[in-house]
């Protein structure tokens, strides 16, 4: 019994360590690629030899404009994430609380739209954005990404609101509070844990978006990280070293954010499970 238990623990630690190593390999290879010139044909496993080679980082910053792209991504992601949470919470409240058939249909349509493949709406969407003057603007891409993540946000909020007892809201209503007051005073504050979940999930998706951003953002002053890295690849050439350097540079802020917020990451995910 005891031996079995220890073996089990050993196996589980082994599993964890193996997995962690697998997860680190891509980052290691990105690092060795970024630190070697294109003419260095040694194995991806080989660390760079000789003098520290930082040209790829210089190219990523000077020509790829990766620092500007990081700022753009920060702006787009922070605004879009706040909006996804706010609008999603607003929408989820009536949908979770009132099961009329209209609301059921609305909910279904929202859920169904989660899976619309972005490419199949790309051209009409781009045309619309062009007419609105939103191509190559922050607000244009923000509205598109917010809309893209809204259904997921509504889904998560609605699932959570269903688990919240209605007693408080009823009490407030008896006291004469209107809908908006009930929502902002009573409901919204209760949504804090699920808000963390929604923000973390959708924030990462927005930060990493490539498919939409690459078409909507083509100038360096608004372009976000993923399309900026994409600009190192064309039909005629690709610069893996610079792309790797750009990717690593761009990871720094989100990695820092993660390390600071790690505890909230897990707490926030409690969402649906909390009673």
């Amino acid at each position: 019994m005891l031996i079995g238990h220890r073996l089990f623990r050993l196996a589980s630690v082994g599993f964890l360590l193996t997995f962690a190593v697998i997860q680190l390999v891509p980052f290691y290879v990105a690092l060795t690629t970024a630190l070697k010139p294109k003419s260095d044909l040694s194995s991806q496993w080989m660390p760079p030899t000789g003098r520290l080679y930082l040209d790829n980082f210089r190219i990523a910053i000077e020509q790829g404009g990766i620092l500007r792209a990081i700022v753009n991504s920060l702006v787009v992601t922070s605004v879009a994430t706040v909006l996804v949470c706010l609008i999603g919470a607003l929408a989820a409240y009536p949908l979770a609380r009132r099961g009329t058939w209209v609301n059921r249909v609305v909910m279904l349509l929202m859920l169904g739209s989660i899976m619309v493949p972005p490419l199949s709406v790309l051209v009409p969407l781009y045309s619309l954005m062009n007419q609105l003057g939103g191509v190559n603007t922050y607000w244009g891409i923000i509205l598109i990404l917010v809309t893209g993540q809204l259904p997921l946000s509504v889904f998560l909020y609605a699932a959570f609101i269903r688990t919240v007892p209605t007693a408080l809201e009823e009490a407030a209503r008896v006291d004469g509070a209107g809908t908006f007051r009930v929502f902002f005073r009573i409901v919204l504050p209760l949504l804090k844990p699920v808000t963390a979940t929604v923000a973390i999930l959708t924030g990462v998706f927005i930060w990493n978006d490539y498919q939409m951003s690459v078409y909507m953002l083509t100038t360096q002053d608004v372009r976000t990280i993923a399309p900026a890295i994409g600009s190192f690849f064309s039909q005629q050439s690709s610069n893996l070293g610079a792309a790797a350097a750009a990717s690593l540079t761009a990871m720094a802020p989100i990695l820092l954010a993660y390390l600071f917020l790690q505890r909230h990451f897990i707490k926030g995910m409690l969402a649906g499970a909390e009673k």
């Binding site: 051209v123 781009y126 062009n130 690849f233 064309s234």
Partner: peptide, 21 residues
């Protein structure tokens, strides 16, 4: 305003032509 290629120059271009931008 110089615009570098994304991975798919042709796709970018077609979207632009289709939408009138």
């Amino acid at each position: 305003n110089l615009v570098p290629s994304s991975t798919d120059h042709e796709g970018d271009l077609k979207v632009r032509l289709a939408s009138g931008n």
